Simulated scan of single mutants.
Amino acid sequence: MESIYRAESRRVLATLIRLLGDFDLAEEALQDAFAAAVERWPQEGVPASPRSWLISTGRFRAIDRLRKRRREIPGEHDMAEETPDIENYDVVDDRLRLIFTCCHPALNPDAQVAMTLREICGLTTEQVAAAFLTTAPTLAQRIVRAKTKIRDARIPYEVPERADLPERLASVLHVVYLVFNQGYFTRADLATEAIRLGRLLVDLLPESEALGLLALMLLHDARRATRTTAAGVLIPLEEQDRSRWNRAQIEEGAALVRRAFETRRAGPYALQAAIAAVHAEAPSSAATDWSEIVGLYDVLLRMEPSPVIELNRAAAVAMRDGPEHGLTLIDAILARGELQEYHLAHAARADLFRRLGRKSEAAAAYNRALALAVEEPERRLLERRLKEL
Results as ranks from 00 to 15, higher is better:
E76T: 01
M79A: 07
T15N: 08
A26I: 09
I63Q: 01
P47D: 09
V46A: 07
R67I: 03
S9M: 08
D24K: 03
H77C: 12
P74F: 05
G75T: 09
A33K: 11
L25S: 02
R10N: 14
E44G: 07
R40T: 08
E39N: 07
P50R: 12
H77I: 10
P74Y: 03
L20I: 02
Q43A: 08
A37N: 13
R59S: 04
P42M: 11
R70H: 09
T57W: 06
E39K: 01
T83D: 06
P47S: 09
G75L: 04
L19I: 06
S56M: 14
R69E: 07
W53N: 06
D85I: 01
S49Y: 07
T83W: 02
R59V: 10
L13K: 14
S9T: 05
L66K: 03
P50C: 15
D85F: 10
L30G: 10
V12R: 00
A80G: 08
R71P: 11
R40L: 15
L54V: 06
L54Y: 11
H77E: 04
E81W: 00
I17G: 06
V12M: 05
R69H: 10
A26H: 11
D22R: 04
L25W: 01
R51C: 10
S56L: 10
V46R: 12
E82Y: 00
F60Q: 14
I17D: 12
E76N: 07
R69Q: 14
F23V: 06
D22V: 05
A35S: 06
E28M: 00
P42L: 02
L66D: 06
M79R: 00
D32K: 04
R65N: 00
A36E: 06
I55W: 01
R18P: 00
R70E: 10
A62E: 07
V12N: 01
A36I: 02
L20T: 08
R51Y: 04
I86H: 05
G21R: 05
D78C: 00
R59C: 15
L19P: 01
A36L: 14
A80R: 02
I86A: 01
L30F: 05
L20P: 05
A80K: 05
E82C: 04
I86K: 07
S49R: 13
A33T: 00
D24F: 12
L25G: 03
R61S: 04
D78K: 08
L30Y: 00
A37R: 12
P84K: 09
E81V: 05
A35P: 08
S52L: 14
A80L: 14
P47G: 04
R40Q: 11
A80H: 15
P50G: 10
D32Q: 10
G58L: 08
V38C: 08
R18S: 03
D64E: 15
L20W: 06
F60P: 02
F60D: 15
E82R: 05
Q31H: 01
E44P: 15
K68L: 12
E27A: 06
E27P: 09
A14I: 08
R18G: 02
V46M: 12
R70F: 10
I55M: 14
E28H: 04
T57S: 15
